[in-house]
Protein backbone atom coordinates (compact mmCIF):
# COMPACT_ATOMS: atom_id res chain seq x y z
CA UNK A 1 0.00 0.00 0.00
CA UNK A 2 1.30 3.40 -1.00
CA UNK A 3 -0.79 6.36 0.02
CA UNK A 4 -0.38 9.90 -1.26
CA UNK A 5 -1.80 12.61 1.00
CA UNK A 6 -2.43 15.98 -0.67
CA UNK A 7 -1.85 18.71 1.84
CA UNK A 8 -2.59 22.40 1.56
CA UNK A 9 -1.12 25.01 3.86
CA UNK A 10 -3.69 27.56 5.00
CA UNK A 11 -4.08 30.53 7.34
CA UNK A 12 -4.82 29.53 10.92
CA UNK A 13 -8.56 29.40 11.61
CA UNK A 14 -8.45 32.43 13.93
CA UNK A 15 -7.12 34.66 11.14
CA UNK A 16 -9.05 37.85 10.41
CA UNK A 17 -9.14 38.02 6.65
CA UNK A 18 -8.48 41.31 4.88
CA UNK A 19 -7.08 42.33 1.54
CA UNK A 20 -4.40 44.75 0.30
CA UNK A 21 -3.21 46.38 -2.93
CA UNK A 22 -6.65 47.68 -3.85
CA UNK A 23 -8.22 44.41 -2.77
CA UNK A 24 -6.23 42.38 -5.23
CA UNK A 25 -4.28 40.35 -2.66
CA UNK A 26 -4.76 38.66 0.67
CA UNK A 27 -3.07 40.64 3.43
CA UNK A 28 -0.65 38.03 4.73
CA UNK A 29 0.84 40.23 7.47
CA UNK A 30 0.86 38.35 10.76
CA UNK A 31 -0.83 35.23 9.39
CA UNK A 32 0.18 31.91 10.97
CA UNK A 33 0.03 28.97 8.60
CA UNK A 34 -1.24 25.53 9.48
CA UNK A 35 -1.98 22.18 7.85
CA UNK A 36 -5.44 22.42 6.33
CA UNK A 37 -7.59 20.83 9.10
CA UNK A 38 -9.18 18.28 6.74
CA UNK A 39 -5.73 17.23 5.53
CA UNK A 40 -4.71 16.56 9.13
CA UNK A 41 -7.58 14.08 9.18
CA UNK A 42 -6.62 12.37 5.93
CA UNK A 43 -2.98 12.19 7.05
CA UNK A 44 -3.95 10.57 10.34
CA UNK A 45 -6.24 8.12 8.56
CA UNK A 46 -3.51 7.28 6.02
CA UNK A 47 -1.17 6.47 8.91
CA UNK A 48 -3.81 4.28 10.57
CA UNK A 49 -4.32 2.35 7.33
CA UNK A 50 -0.64 1.89 6.56
CA UNK A 51 0.30 0.94 10.12
CA UNK A 52 -1.88 -2.15 9.70
CA UNK A 53 -0.34 -3.11 6.38
CA UNK A 54 3.18 -1.80 6.82
CA UNK A 55 3.52 0.62 3.94
CA UNK A 56 4.21 4.26 3.18
CA UNK A 57 2.56 7.64 3.32
CA UNK A 58 3.86 10.44 1.10
CA UNK A 59 2.80 14.06 1.48
CA UNK A 60 2.45 16.27 -1.57
CA UNK A 61 2.08 20.02 -1.47
CA UNK A 62 2.00 22.57 -4.25
CA UNK A 63 3.50 25.65 -2.70
CA UNK A 64 6.51 27.84 -2.18
CA UNK A 65 9.43 27.28 0.21
CA UNK A 66 7.62 28.92 3.14
CA UNK A 67 5.38 25.83 3.22
CA UNK A 68 8.34 23.67 4.27
CA UNK A 69 7.93 24.26 8.02
CA UNK A 70 4.33 23.11 7.83
CA UNK A 71 5.31 20.12 5.67
CA UNK A 72 7.88 19.17 8.33
CA UNK A 73 5.04 19.14 10.82
CA UNK A 74 3.20 16.60 8.69
CA UNK A 75 6.39 14.51 8.60
CA UNK A 76 6.57 14.81 12.40
CA UNK A 77 3.02 13.49 12.65
CA UNK A 78 4.26 10.39 10.86
CA UNK A 79 4.38 10.63 7.04
CA UNK A 80 7.41 8.89 5.53
CA UNK A 81 8.42 11.51 3.02
CA UNK A 82 7.17 14.59 1.23
CA UNK A 83 7.21 16.16 -2.21
CA UNK A 84 6.74 19.87 -2.75
CA UNK A 85 5.96 21.17 -6.20
CA UNK A 86 7.65 24.53 -6.14
CA UNK A 87 4.93 26.91 -7.31
CA UNK A 88 2.44 29.45 -6.05
CA UNK A 89 -0.82 27.87 -7.25
CA UNK A 90 -3.24 30.05 -9.19
CA UNK A 91 -6.31 27.87 -8.58
CA UNK A 92 -7.46 24.34 -7.77
CA UNK A 93 -7.06 23.27 -11.36
CA UNK A 94 -3.40 24.25 -11.34
CA UNK A 95 -2.88 22.27 -8.12
CA UNK A 96 -4.60 19.19 -9.51
CA UNK A 97 -2.58 19.21 -12.74
CA UNK A 98 0.66 19.36 -10.78
CA UNK A 99 -0.35 16.61 -8.37
CA UNK A 100 -1.52 14.44 -11.27
CA UNK A 101 2.09 14.35 -12.51
CA UNK A 102 3.32 13.24 -9.09
CA UNK A 103 0.54 10.67 -8.81
CA UNK A 104 1.28 9.15 -12.23
CA UNK A 105 4.95 8.80 -11.40
CA UNK A 106 4.32 7.22 -8.00
CA UNK A 107 1.70 4.51 -8.68
CA UNK A 108 -0.19 5.09 -5.42
CA UNK A 109 -2.99 2.78 -4.29
CA UNK A 110 -4.83 5.55 -2.55
CA UNK A 111 -4.78 9.31 -2.86
CA UNK A 112 -6.34 11.30 -0.06
CA UNK A 113 -7.35 14.95 0.04
CA UNK A 114 -9.39 17.08 2.38
CA UNK A 115 -13.02 17.85 1.68
CA UNK A 116 -11.87 21.38 0.93
CA UNK A 117 -9.12 23.84 1.71
CA UNK A 118 -10.34 26.31 4.28
CA UNK A 119 -8.71 29.16 2.36
CA UNK A 120 -10.15 29.14 -1.14
CA UNK A 121 -12.80 26.52 -0.33
CA UNK A 122 -12.83 25.07 -3.80
CA UNK A 123 -13.53 21.49 -2.87
CA UNK A 124 -12.16 20.81 -6.33
CA UNK A 125 -8.86 18.99 -6.13
CA UNK A 126 -10.15 15.48 -5.34
CA UNK A 127 -12.57 15.40 -8.27
CA UNK A 128 -10.15 17.04 -10.69
CA UNK A 129 -7.38 14.66 -9.83
CA UNK A 130 -9.69 11.65 -10.03
CA UNK A 131 -10.74 12.63 -13.53
CA UNK A 132 -7.22 13.50 -14.68
CA UNK A 133 -6.18 9.99 -13.58
CA UNK A 134 -9.56 8.49 -14.57
CA UNK A 135 -10.00 6.52 -11.36
CA UNK A 136 -12.94 6.28 -8.92
CA UNK A 137 -13.43 8.89 -6.21
CA UNK A 138 -15.43 9.08 -3.04
CA UNK A 139 -15.99 12.50 -1.50
CA UNK A 140 -16.64 13.65 2.09
CA UNK A 141 -15.70 10.40 3.79
CA UNK A 142 -16.38 9.84 7.46
CA UNK A 143 -14.81 6.35 7.43
CA UNK A 144 -12.04 4.81 5.33
CA UNK A 145 -10.32 1.45 5.39
CA UNK A 146 -8.62 -1.01 3.08
CA UNK A 147 -9.61 -4.66 3.51
CA UNK A 148 -8.42 -7.46 1.19
CA UNK A 149 -7.33 -5.08 -1.53
CA UNK A 150 -10.56 -3.11 -1.61
CA UNK A 151 -11.31 0.30 -0.19
CA UNK A 152 -14.24 0.70 2.18
CA UNK A 153 -15.80 4.08 2.86
CA UNK A 154 -18.65 5.80 4.60
CA UNK A 155 -19.57 9.16 3.11
CA UNK A 156 -21.98 12.00 3.73
CA UNK A 157 -24.85 12.35 1.29
CA UNK A 158 -27.64 14.91 1.39
CA UNK A 159 -29.57 14.08 4.52
CA UNK A 160 -27.67 10.93 5.48
CA UNK A 161 -24.73 8.62 5.02
CA UNK A 162 -23.79 5.82 2.67
CA UNK A 163 -21.29 2.95 2.76
CA UNK A 164 -19.30 2.16 -0.36
CA UNK A 165 -16.71 -0.33 -1.56
CA UNK A 166 -14.37 0.53 -4.43
CA UNK A 167 -11.48 -0.92 -6.33
CA UNK A 168 -7.98 0.48 -5.94
CA UNK A 169 -6.55 2.85 -6.88
CA UNK A 170 -9.03 5.36 -5.57
CA UNK A 171 -9.19 8.99 -4.48
CA UNK A 172 -11.07 9.93 -1.36
CA UNK A 173 -11.63 13.20 0.48
CA UNK A 174 -11.76 13.53 4.25
CA UNK A 175 -14.73 14.94 6.11
CA UNK A 176 -14.82 15.81 9.79
CA UNK A 177 -15.59 12.81 11.98
CA UNK A 178 -13.12 10.62 10.05
CA UNK A 179 -10.75 10.36 13.01
CA UNK A 180 -9.10 12.39 15.75
CA UNK A 181 -6.15 14.24 14.21
CA UNK A 182 -2.77 13.20 15.61
CA UNK A 183 -0.39 15.74 16.98
CA UNK A 184 3.38 15.40 16.65
CA UNK A 185 5.37 14.07 19.60
CA UNK A 186 9.04 14.76 20.43
CA UNK A 187 10.25 11.60 18.73
CA UNK A 188 8.31 12.48 15.60
CA UNK A 189 9.66 16.01 15.55
CA UNK A 190 13.25 14.73 15.79
CA UNK A 191 12.67 12.11 13.10
CA UNK A 192 11.04 14.65 10.77
CA UNK A 193 14.28 16.64 10.48
CA UNK A 194 15.93 13.95 8.43
CA UNK A 195 12.97 12.62 6.47
CA UNK A 196 13.17 13.30 2.72
CA UNK A 197 11.44 16.44 1.44
CA UNK A 198 11.92 16.51 -2.31
CA UNK A 199 11.32 19.74 -4.19
CA UNK A 200 10.31 19.44 -7.84
CA UNK A 201 9.67 22.15 -10.40
CA UNK A 202 6.11 22.54 -11.75
CA UNK A 203 5.02 21.57 -15.22
CA UNK A 204 3.95 24.50 -17.37
CA UNK A 205 0.20 24.59 -17.91
CA UNK A 206 -2.20 26.89 -19.68
CA UNK A 207 -4.21 28.87 -17.11
CA UNK A 208 -7.84 28.33 -16.22
CA UNK A 209 -8.76 31.35 -14.17
CA UNK A 210 -7.50 34.63 -12.80
CA UNK A 211 -8.34 35.94 -9.35
CA UNK A 212 -8.84 39.59 -10.14
CA UNK A 213 -10.37 41.13 -7.06
CA UNK A 214 -11.36 40.37 -3.48
CA UNK A 215 -14.04 41.80 -1.26
CA UNK A 216 -14.81 41.59 2.43
CA UNK A 217 -18.37 40.79 3.48
CA UNK A 218 -20.53 43.85 4.09
CA UNK A 219 -20.38 44.71 7.77
CA UNK A 220 -23.63 44.08 9.60
CA UNK A 221 -25.66 46.96 10.97
CA UNK A 222 -25.73 47.13 14.75
CA UNK A 223 -27.81 44.36 16.25
CA UNK A 224 -31.40 45.15 17.19
CA UNK A 225 -32.01 43.85 20.71
CA UNK A 226 -35.28 42.63 22.17
CA UNK A 227 -36.33 42.45 25.81
CA UNK A 228 -35.69 39.05 27.38
CA UNK A 229 -38.97 39.36 29.29
CA UNK A 230 -40.85 39.87 26.05
CA UNK A 231 -39.21 37.51 23.59
CA UNK A 232 -42.45 37.29 21.61
CA UNK A 233 -41.50 40.64 20.04
CA UNK A 234 -38.67 38.91 18.24
CA UNK A 235 -41.10 36.47 16.66
CA UNK A 236 -43.35 39.37 15.66
CA UNK A 237 -40.40 41.07 14.00
CA UNK A 238 -39.45 37.92 12.10
CA UNK A 239 -43.04 37.57 10.95
CA UNK A 240 -43.32 41.23 9.94
CA UNK A 241 -40.16 40.99 7.86
CA UNK A 242 -41.38 37.71 6.34
CA UNK A 243 -38.35 35.80 7.58
CA UNK A 244 -40.67 33.17 9.05
Amino acid sequence: MKILVCMSVVPDTTTKINFTDNNTKLNTAGIQYIINPYDELSLTKALEITEKSGSTVTIVNVGLADADVVIRKALAIGANDAIRVNADPTDGQYVAEQIAEIAKAGAYDMILTGRESIDYNGGQVAGLLAQLLDIPSVNVCTKMDVIDGKAHFERDIDGGRETIITELPVIASAQKDLCEPRIPNMKGIMAARTKPLTVVEPKVIEGYSVYSQFESPVAKQAVQLFDSQNAAQLIEKLRETKVI
Binding site: I118, D119, N121, Y211, F214, S216, P217
Partner: peptide, 20 residues
Protein backbone atom coordinates in the same frame (compact mmCIF):
# COMPACT_ATOMS: atom_id res chain seq x y z
CA UNK B 1 -16.55 36.20 -17.74
CA UNK B 2 -16.20 36.98 -14.05
CA UNK B 3 -17.85 35.05 -11.26
CA UNK B 4 -18.10 35.90 -7.59
CA UNK B 5 -17.22 33.10 -5.21
CA UNK B 6 -17.15 32.81 -1.44
CA UNK B 7 -13.67 32.19 -0.02
CA UNK B 8 -12.07 31.88 3.43
CA UNK B 9 -15.19 30.17 4.74
CA UNK B 10 -17.33 33.22 4.21
CA UNK B 11 -14.73 35.68 5.52
CA UNK B 12 -14.32 37.05 1.99
CA UNK B 13 -15.35 36.94 -1.65
CA UNK B 14 -13.24 36.63 -4.77
CA UNK B 15 -13.97 37.77 -8.30
CA UNK B 16 -12.53 35.25 -10.71
CA UNK B 17 -12.16 35.50 -14.48
CA UNK B 18 -12.81 32.18 -16.12
CA UNK B 19 -10.48 32.26 -19.08
CA UNK B 20 -11.24 29.04 -20.95
Amino acid sequence: FTVKRAVFSGKGFAYVNLTR
